[in-house]
Write a protein that binds this DNA or RNA. Structure first.
Lengths: 334, 334
DNA sequence: GAGGTTTATTGAATCGTTTTAAGATCGGGA
DNA sequence: TCCCGATCTTAAAACGATTCAATAAACCTC
């Protein structure tokens, strides 16, 4: 049905090899022939069959990316960075959403394996280093994003959450706040513990400052609001003068509780607030939310770059790249 | 490097044809041989090369899906529905995010064409029927999601926004509200006009009810908050007793403005509020938000179903499926 | 036990592209 | 005129899985 190189060659009066050369090594073909072949391609509406190309090449020119949650702007921005960088070298990126489910993650890895992807970028959910090793044995390298590899056997590109936590609390201290509360949890999430550790580090630099830790069981608006209500219920003298929330959803919940009719806690006057992730909603909150922003697109770009290098030379030693997050100051912490 | 059917055949002491049969038509092969071949497959860690399979088959067993915005839960749920339905028939879905950009949309369609996808699902951004026709000529059918095809030359699966608007306002009327305001815009967005039309239809059934239209220039929290402030600034007697917002973001902005310290408009007592889309945040709002929910997953499932049928029989006439949205009542409109 | 029928397995051809060694064409120098 | 080298172009051999006509083996039935 669809035209093949053979049809193009016949119409242009050349051999199939020449048609291939026109498309892949134009410098090897005389201008006159090139024009004739191009005309035939246009006339027939020829579009290369990638399956055949791939079969011959032995591997695909597509990179697979599996993220924990496509709805999360952090990952979409990361994906965008990856796509752009890949496109610059003629590669495509296809996006899979594991949604933090091991079986979905496994399904995507299977797909990438049968498709003989050029490489895989993944923000892993479970422990999948065994599976990734298997892919690597088959010639498909993998780079971890937003997580570091436990045994450093794979390259990774991540963000320093400890530095992020420190950044947030240092900022609050600089604003003159001294009684700071960290609201977040569960501590099983590595990012949460890292951010808390960072907060502790920063507090330690200021002898008269204290850090209260308020644990919640999920990083959601609801959980944040509950924690916020608890603060509102306290005697005003017992309240912290600043809150560092483990992410923006929690921060928004806290903000709702503080600003609620009847609560009347003023933000930032009475309690300053800093979140984490800098999601879209952060700037659209009633009081625009200060937050810690991660260089998402840069992570994607860098991960692709490393991946392409490893695909070209499988003997390359794994590298761990860690980026620094950035503080975005808005009204909630002024 | 990687094992091929040939290696498996050699190890199992059978021909390549038999290996293929073991994998694709197990009933054609004797149990003894099947066991032997399976052992060889396991031992070698054989994984089928999809490029070769596809080349032979003439088309991929993957379906391409392009959405306007992967961050939008409507589309991720739709994608999930599509994936599940596709998996049931042994197909995979790959997800592309056009982000409402024509060039990104075109890039994905190009990719799907060279990959000889089994079919394409798309929530189109620009006018791409010409391009889709081209794909169809090459044997790649397309089904539109969340939009109807202007000339009905393609199948489509969408939601009745007029009915949704009517549903929202009918509900508010049933709650005894009579002075209703529609907040939304710009009217260039088809969904906005449809929802407004639905609202008008519902109002017409209640002679003593009035509909005020408050236009805004974007469907954002910020724009909604500005509109909400305008309501707060009015003499209480001039305020509507219910607001139907064109989507949940706008509704949340309105809610923020009404509930803000100093504004003290009680929701739903003084003003009831209904949004549209039922995003996650809707239920997490200070006052949980009533909203109109679209059957996202069902749309994805149905679209895949139609696509597979059209792929099997290209002569099938295009079908337009329109689903009805659903009202989700929460505290904001009680 | 011969003939016929079913069942299991084989091997070669095929899909469409890329690659490479070999061949053709041309111009120019001797 | 002949030969050499430099360009271009060609033809054929891959890549790996699937399929199908052909073969081989087993099983009945009389």
């Amino acid at each position: 049905m669809a035209a093949s190189v053979k049809d193009v060659a016949a119409l242009a009066g050349v051999s199939v090899g020449t048609v291939s050369n026109v498309m892949n090594r134009p410098e090897k073909v005389s201008p006159a022939v090139a024009v004739r072949v191009q005309a035939a391609i246009d006339q027939l509406g020829f579009v290369r069959n990638d399956a055949a190309r791939q079969l011959r090449a032995g591997r695909s020119s597509t990179i697979g990316l599996v993220v924990l949650d496509v709805r999360n702007p952090f990952f979409t921005d990361l994906a965008r960075g990856a796509e752009d960088r890949a496109a610059a070298d003629g590669f495509s990126v296809i996006l899979g959403n594991s949604d933090e489910k091991a079986d979905r993650e496994a399904t995507y890895l299977d797909l990438f394996e049968v498709q003989r992807m050029h490489g895989v970028l993944i923000s892993p959910f479970g422990d999948i280093t065994g599976r990734l090793r298997q892919l690597r044995d088959r010639g498909i390298p993998a780079v971890l994003v937003d997580r570091t590899s436990a045994d450093a056997s794979f390259s990774s590109v991540s963000v320093d959450d400890i530095a992020g936590g420190s950044l947030a609390v240092t900022h609050l201290l600089a604003q003159g706040r001294r009684r700071i509360a960290f609201i977040g949890g569960p501590l099983e999430i590595q990012q949460v513990t890292d951010r808390l550790d960072g907060a502790r580090t920063a507090i330690a630099t200021q002898p008269d400052a204290t850090l209260e830790v308020i644990l919640i069981d999920a990083l959601t608006v609801i959980a944040g609001r509950a924690a916020g209500r608890e603060l509102v219920a306290r005697d005003p003298a017992e309240r912290p003068d600043a809150v560092f929330a483990a992410n923006d959803l929690v921060a928004m919940g806290v903000l709702q509780a503080l600003m609620m009719q009847g609560a009347d806690v003023r933000v930032p006057e009475q309690i300053a607030l800093v979140g984490y992730d800098d999601i879209d909603f952060a700037s659209a909150a009633v009081v625009p939310l200060s937050s810690i922003r991660q260089p998402s697109a840069l992570i994607g770009q860098t991960a692709v770059e490393i991946l392409l290098e490893e695909a070209a030379d499988p003997a390359l030693a794994p590298r761990q790249v860690v980026f620094q997050p950035e503080l975005v100051v808005r009204e909630s912490s002024l």
